[in-house]
Amino acid sequence: MRINGNTIINGLNIVLVPYRDNHVPKYHSWMKSEELQKLTASEPLTLEEEYEMQKSWREDEDKCTFIILDKRIYSEKNNEIESMIGDTNIFITNKDTATAEIEIMIAEERARGKKIGWEAVIIMLFYGIKYVGVKKYEAKISFANNVSINMFKKLGFSELSRSEVFQETTLEKNVSADWTEWLHRQFNFEIQNC
């Protein structure tokens, strides 16, 4: 999505930057992991397909993605590639109802279990509401990914449906003014143009 093409979001422990072509090789190496493929319900892509996917996420008006950087590493090294730990994105699934699917992936094992995903997804939920106009969120999560299921339930999402065929649950959350304010109070973050 072009709306975030020049946006950087500085959080407490993370920095969110637009997904650019220089990020693709590391992202592609992550997605060779069978564990990540299973947790994200993804199929392996060739490097060329990954570049096409990145281009789609950058240009399509129904997609918005950020690469998650470890703020401490980024502050020390000023290198996005070395600081990459995952991604978060939203995908508009219904423009009429302003419904979007939200996704979060912490690919680097060293970054898991530190509430980094929690911070990233809260910031992304708020960004989607404020800048994309999302009114309802859905999260499709593999049955095997209990960490994500529990995280989204703590965020107020409730189960909408279960698919035995795809082995995933769909959780939903309607946006409200109270919830939006609650999201905004969770972390101090600054949205800026680069």
Rank of each mutant, 00 (worst) to 15 (best):
G5K: 12
N6C: 11
N10T: 12
L12M: 10
V15N: 09
V15S: 08
Y19F: 15
D21Q: 08
N22F: 11
N22D: 10
V24N: 04
K26F: 00
K26D: 01
H28A: 05
S33N: 15
E35I: 09
L39I: 04
L39T: 01
L39K: 05
A41M: 09
P44K: 10
E52Y: 02
M53N: 07
K55V: 09
S56E: 14
E59D: 13
C64P: 00
I68V: 13
I73P: 02
I73R: 08
Y74C: 03
E76Q: 09
E76W: 04
N79G: 07
E80P: 04
E80K: 08
E80A: 06
I81N: 06
I81P: 03
I81K: 02
I85S: 07
D87K: 00
T88N: 02
T93N: 08
N94T: 06
K95P: 08
D96A: 12
T97K: 07
E101A: 10
E101F: 04
I104P: 01
A107D: 04
A107L: 05
E108R: 06
A111N: 08
G113A: 02
G117M: 08
W118T: 14
V121L: 05
I123G: 01
M124W: 07
F126I: 00
Y131D: 13
V134Q: 13
K135R: 15
K135C: 13
K136V: 07
Y137C: 12
Y137V: 12
I141G: 14
N145G: 06
N146A: 12
N146M: 12
S148A: 15
M151C: 11
G156K: 10
S158D: 04
S161P: 10
R162Y: 10
S163Q: 13
T170Q: 11
E172N: 14
K173G: 00
S176R: 01
S176P: 00
T180I: 01
E181Y: 10
Q186D: 04
F187S: 13
E190A: 02
I191S: 02
Q192C: 11
C194R: 10
